[in-house]
Simulated assay, not measured.
Amino acid sequence: MSEPIHPETRIGHVHLKVADLDRALGFYCGVLGLGLTQRYGERAAFVAAGGYHHHIGLNTWESLGGSPPAPGTTGLYHLALLYPNRAALADALRRVEAAGIPLDGASDHGVSEALYLRDPDGNGVELYRDRPEAEWPRDPDGALRMVTARLDLDSLRREDG
C-alpha cells in the first residue's frame, strides 16, 4: 500500500457536462448564488464562491441538448457544496425553496447536516455544513459514528442568516 497523500489535499473543482449552459448557470448562479468567474465562449463556464477561480466547471462540449444518464448507470452520484455554518446552509435552503426546487432528502449525519437535490440536468447536489469536530458523535472507544437521521428543516428555516 502506498503512503497517504498530504492531509491538506482537497478537491479543487468538479466539471459537469450539461445539456443547456444558460439553464445550468440559472441554477448554480441564480439559485445557489455562486458567482460566474468566466464564460468560455458559448459552450462552457466556470462558477465559484468567494473569488476562487472555479469550484464548478459547466460545459456542453459533449452534451449539448443531451439527457441525464439512465438509472442504473455509473457516473457522478453527487457533488457537495460545503457551507461555513448553519446560517449559510439555512440561506441555501431558502434559495432552493424560493426557486421551487424539490429536495430529494434532508439528513442529519451527526457530523454534518445535509440537503439533497438535483440540478436541471439531473446531477445530484448536496448542500451541507459540518458540525464542529468536538460535537461529532463517537463510540465509547472514540471511533467516529456517522448516522443518518431526518434533518429538522423547520429548525433550519428558523436559523438567522
Rank of each mutant, 00 (worst) to 15 (best):
I5Y: 12
E8L: 13
E8Q: 14
T9K: 06
R10V: 13
G12D: 07
V18K: 02
D20L: 02
L21N: 04
D22I: 07
A24L: 01
L25N: 04
F27N: 08
C29I: 03
G30F: 02
G30S: 05
V31N: 07
V31C: 06
L34A: 14
L34S: 11
Q38M: 12
R39Q: 12
G41R: 02
A44K: 05
A48R: 04
A49E: 09
G50P: 06
G50Y: 00
G50N: 07
G51C: 02
G51K: 02
Y52I: 08
Y52E: 12
H53R: 08
H53K: 03
H54T: 08
H54I: 02
I56F: 07
G57L: 05
W61E: 06
W61R: 06
S63C: 04
P69E: 00
P71I: 00
G72S: 09
G72A: 10
G72K: 11
H78A: 03
H78P: 03
L79A: 12
L81V: 13
L81H: 10
Y83T: 11
Y83G: 15
N85I: 03
A87R: 05
D91A: 15
A92M: 06
L93D: 04
R94G: 13
V96Q: 09
E97C: 10
A98V: 05
A98E: 04
A99D: 13
G100D: 12
I101V: 15
P102T: 01
P102N: 01
L103K: 14
D104L: 11
G105Y: 02
G105P: 05
H109M: 10
G110Q: 04
A114Q: 03
L117K: 10
L117W: 02
D119P: 11
D119H: 12
D121F: 00
D121Y: 01
G122F: 06
N123K: 06
N123E: 03
G124H: 09
V125L: 07
V125Q: 09
V125C: 13
E126C: 11
R131G: 11
R131A: 14
P132M: 00
E133P: 15
E133R: 14
W136G: 07
P137C: 06
